[in-house]
Structure formats: C-alpha cells, structure tokens
Design a protein around this nucleic acid. Structure first.
Lengths: 227, 227
DNA sequence: ATATTTTTTTAAGTATGCTTGAATTCATAA
DNA sequence: TTATGAATTCAAGCATACTTAAAAAAATAT
C-alpha cells in the first residue's frame, strides 16, 4: 500500500494539517490534488482500510500515526533530494522542486540515508523547510515572518520561499532576489498592500500575493536590543 | 508513449540484439521480461503502432531507429546513475544495479545531463559497459576476454562483471575480488572447467558459470611482446 | 419543519498492463 | 501433404486510479 498516488494523498493531508492546524475536508483535498470528489471517496476508503487515515465524513480527513510516518518519509525524501540537487548537482533553484517531486517516490531508504549522510544530516531544505529525520522526528521549525507582516524601515534576510510556484522562484532568481539576500523594507503601500524593498542596488516592488510567500528573519543591527 | 514498461521492453530488445547480433523472438522476450506471450503480443502491437519496433511474426522483433534512440537513452540513464551512485554516494557495488533500474525511468534529460557533466562525461560504467552519449552514439566497446577464455599462467585485470546477478557481485566483493584486481590464472581444471586464480594473497577457485561472467584484460609484462 | 445546497457515494466507463485458457495460425518433419 | 507442435492472438478478467453523471445523505437556511 505505497503507491505514487497514495504517497501524494498522504503528503497533501499532512501539509494541510501542518499549515492550518486542522483536518482537511474531502472537497478541499480533491481540489488540491486536482481529482474528482469521487476519486477522494474511493481513495479514502482504501487509505482507511490500511489504517493510514481516519475519516469521518462531513468532518474531514486526518492521518493516523502510521499515515503520518509515511507522509514524513515522503517529505524527507523530497527535501533531501531538493537540497542534494541544488548543493551537489547545482540544479537551478526553480527546477529543483519538480525533479524532487518525482524522485521522492523512487528512492529506497538505503539511498536516501546515504544522501542524508552525504549532506551531513541537514535540518533544513533550500526553502528553509525542516527535513524529517530517519526516526520520523522534525527539527524545530524556524519562526520566520512573511514579508506581508514586515515592518517599514526594518532589515530582513530572505530565508524561505514557498516552493510550489516554480514561476515565482524563476522570477525572484531573475531579479536577483535569492535566498539569504538582505534587504530593507522601504515602503508599504496601503493602496494595494504592495511592498517596496531595497537590496544591493535594486529597488523592487513586491505584490501582496508574493509578499505572503516570502519568509524572513529580521536583522537586528549591532547595538539594538530586542527582548 | 514512454512508460516504465515500454522502456523495459526496448531495453531488453536492444540488449539482446547487442549481445547476440540478432533479433529477439517473441517467446524469448516473454521469458526475459517474465511476462506471458499474450502480453508480448499486446505490447508488440503498441510499440509497432508507435514506430518503435518492427515485428514480423515468427521472425522476431527489432528496434527501429526511433526505438533504438529511446533504448539508448534508458541505458544512458541507467549507466550514469550506476557510476554516480558508486563514485559519488559510495553505494555498495552489489546494490547499485537495482537502484539504477528504478532511477533510469524517473530522470529528466536535464538532470541526467548534469550528472553526466558532474562525472566528467565518462565513457564506461562501473561494470565496464559503454555509456551512450547525449547524441545517442556509443563509445567503442572494450574487447575483453572472459575468464572462461583465459590462458593458464597469464596475468589479467578484472575489468567488468555482468551486473544482473546481485549475488555474484556480493560474493566477489566479500572474497575481495573487485574491479581492477590483478591476478594470475594458476590452474584450469578440465574436470569441471573451473579456474584457480591468485590475487594479492588469496587463492580462489572459480566455477565455470562464474568464469563466463568475468571480463578481463590481459596484462602484458614489461619486456614481453605481442604482435 | 421543510427546502435548498453541499457533500458524499454509487454506477458505469476508460486506459495501462498484466493474467489464464482457448482458439487460431504457421512452420516443419514425416 | 498432412499431422504435430510451437508460436501467436483472442477473449475475458483483474488491479489501480482515474472520469462523468446520477443518486443519496447530511448540513444549512428559511
């Protein structure tokens, strides 16, 4: 009971729960996976039968411990591959996600553990997301803020970008706004909730939508205090 | 029309032709792929329709140019992965084949070209087999002899081992008879066609069956001539 | 409480790639 | 030339994972 499809279902269920702190409902899951509601109904039955999810209809879908372990394993494979492809093979940031999306389903435990070791047992992937460990535990998530929550005048470092929008990452790379870039928030436009930021010699206007996908760490200047 | 199944069919058809210099017949192909004759019948129709093979019934199956290019591509991916897994990730020789057997079907051109470049565009895989190039050409095959053809008293270097028998490779590794080991043929036993060889401080008896899977290069001592 | 809307399930159908067993086609040996 | 056996194909069926359309069940609104 571990096919590409089931792994993708488990991953989505896990990620939704992680992001929103609540069970995903069936219709939402169908949308996320781009399949019909009937397909969810089918698959939910199978996953339940195998003890991977618990599903109360009209209430939502949740992973069991067993299902969660499987999801963490897929995510582990995905994130280790992403890091490996970028760090070792120097694959462009914008292409790494879709390659990993395939490889995550075709990598034995032995191979992924070797990759893990090769990389020095890293805690975070190139998007800043925590990499589940071999034993299923997760490194503490980093508490970044999004640009949408940033304060005018403050300095930040770009730590993480949602990785599901390939085009976003291509765009950011093109304009030179890559991971670990330090910048200042120059302006916050109430009119359209866009942000103007400055890094190196570039001034960039960032739309509201994009600002919600950029995760930052505030840079506290020497001399400042924050307690 | 490029699924895991079709890729495996094309690979088998190609390899048979390469090894025996003749078309593979349908019954043989069924045995090699561990499927029924009916399955071959089905698939042969599909592959023909897509212009990948030419099949005259009762005569055998042959790749078209298009089919051969696809086969070479799969083999390229397989052999590059094998080399990468051994050289970069230090995966045991005995496990590399089955990992590559999976990855060969799930690797984009971009990724495999990066791996190729990373390895310095190698000509041969860890078994000594030529790696098809990006343009579909094959490096000249090496003309090794098998141990079964070796001469008593002569010295050889182990260059290549048939990679489809995982257990053979495990065994050879265990006894220390690995790639590039140099040895002398001490004895050729007519009785069971076994060979006794000596490398480092080990004397090893090699059965006839195994001797046919070991590919060697003769070592011409300094001072000797061979013309 | 009833009507409406949303959610969920069922039913029938599709594609791939197999299976088995029966029928058919072809090659060849007597 | 015909019988035999081998090679090939057909027919029906299975599993996975979908689809659409219709039916049923539950939630929500009036």
């Amino acid at each position: 009971m571990s096919t590409i499809s089931t792994e993708n279902y488990l991953k989505k269920i896990f990620n939704h729960n992680k992001a929103f702190g609540e069970k995903i409902n069936a219709v939402k899951l169908a949308q996320e996976l781009s399949v019909s509601n009937a397909a969810i109904s089918d698959m939910a039955k199978k996953l339940s039968k195998h003890g991977l999810i618990s599903y109360e209809k009209y209430k939502g879908i949740e992973l069991t411990d067993k299902g969660e372990q499987m999801a963490l394993n897929v995510i582990r494979r995905h994130r280790l591959w992403e890091l490996f492809l970028i760090k070792v093979l120097d694959i462009p940031w914008s292409e790494v996600h879709e390659q990993a999306e395939v490889l995550e389903h075709h990598t034995s435990d032995k191979l992924i553990d070797r990759i893990d070791e090769f990389l020095g047992f890293p805690d975070f992937d190139p998007h800043g997301h925590p990499i589940p460990r071999k034993n299923g535990s997760l490194p503490d998530a980093q508490n970044y803020v999004t640009l949408a929550e940033a304060a005018e005048g403050s300095s930040y470092e770009l730590m993480q970008v949602d990785d599901h929008e390939k085009k976003l990452i291509s765009y950011l790379t093109k304009v030179g706004f890559v991971l670990n870039t330090r910048f200042v928030v120059i302006d916050k436009l109430d009119f359209d909730k866009s942000y103007t930021i400055k890094f190196n010699d570039t001034v960039l206007s960032v739309s509201q939508k994009i600002s919600e996908s950029l995760y930052l760490q505030e840079i506290i200047e020497a001399g400042e205090k924050n307690d």
